[in-house]
Design a protein around this nucleic acid. Sequence first.
DNA 1: GTCTATATTGGGATAGAC
DNA 2: GTCTATCCCAATATAGAC
Lengths: 214, 214
Amino acid sequence: MSQSHSRRPRGRPSVGIREAILDATYRLVLERGLTGLTTKEIAAAADASEASIYYHFADKTALIEGVILDAVLEPLRAFAAIFPAETEGRSLRHALTSYARKLTAFWERVLPLLAAVQADAELRDEFASRITELGYGPHRGVRAVADYLTEQQRLGHVRKDVDARQAALSFAGACFLSAYQRHMFGPRRKLPPLDRTLETLVRLIEPSGAEARR
Amino acid sequence: MSQSHSRRPRGRPSVGIREAILDATYRLVLERGLTGLTTKEIAAAADASEASIYYHFADKTALIEGVILDAVLEPLRAFAAIFPAETEGRSLRHALTSYARKLTAFWERVLPLLAAVQADAELRDEFASRITELGYGPHRGVRAVADYLTEQQRLGHVRKDVDARQAALSFAGACFLSAYQRHMFGPRRKLPPLDRTLETLVRLIEPSGAEARR
DNA sequence: GTCTATATTGGGATAGAC
DNA sequence: GTCTATCCCAATATAGAC
């Protein structure tokens, strides 16, 4: 967006370069990865000069770290809150399917950034401590589902002999693997469609006639 | 292995530098990530000169790509074959638990490398096409489990109304998420222990008394 | 605030002795 | 085959005009 003219036509908006730089950096990390990413590339993609990068950011590291950590932490923060709202007055199947779609989309958005984080020692350490201190992490999503399942169990919509946390891990795991596979190999459908996997899981944990009385 | 003395004592083995370089590169990618990894660092870690690197390898790219692709593809290849052997004459629970342990260990070994692959555009493309052409990929592990479950279904050890492929995805997904979490945050136990998750899954897919007759 | 032009550092790669 | 010494260039970062 906003490329395709190597020089902005006069009347350039005196503000917005900073945003363009952030945006370009983000896109480049997604598309080309972090390895070998240069300030020249970023400047070109943002249609700005390298000097402008150094006007707005202390150095390259500050730029990259800022972009990546924000791009991961913000969705994480946003996502951590949505599950309860998603379940309001919905059937077990509906709630889980809906959540799974969001969870998968979330992972697909974040995974490329996590790869970049992981490939860089400094970023990795910084990221791990930030996540830990904020209390985010995969267990967050798993626990949200587990809590929901426990509640549904109390209401008799989930078999009593199912360990909610374990079932939640299977659930989240299926979403995660599905997202990771698309992340690495694109949208080829080599794995079973996630929707049907979830349906299978739901059927497994729902009380069958014989189980309902236990 | 073979570190802890910064200079080989005299009588250095005139052969083995190539191996030392490969080994050092591998270790450095794991420890420090690919971003910013230099030939100087590699040389130092291998206790060799930079020139030796260029004697044995065409350029830095050839070295890195060689190391990483080998380090990923070889375990992949080895792993693709083991599942059937693991299941011989074992109970459903035992076979799955044993396989899960291997699957998780495999992922933990490979994930750091995959992150490096993903962070580099060239590597990523090269890797994706190699994997595709070899027919590896996450679906491989999923399918192996699915086939096994189908067989067990025929033998009456798995509920008939369970879709084997979907159950396998849940199974592999739980392993994968578990491995990924440890990969990112270390061995903190924020997720439910995998063993118990698998037990839960096994119990779910095993025929209950009421289901056995269907 | 943004640019052009330039300084500086350091990493990839090579020459040539041994 | 391995080393030391060096080259070259690309990438980060800055100076200074506008």
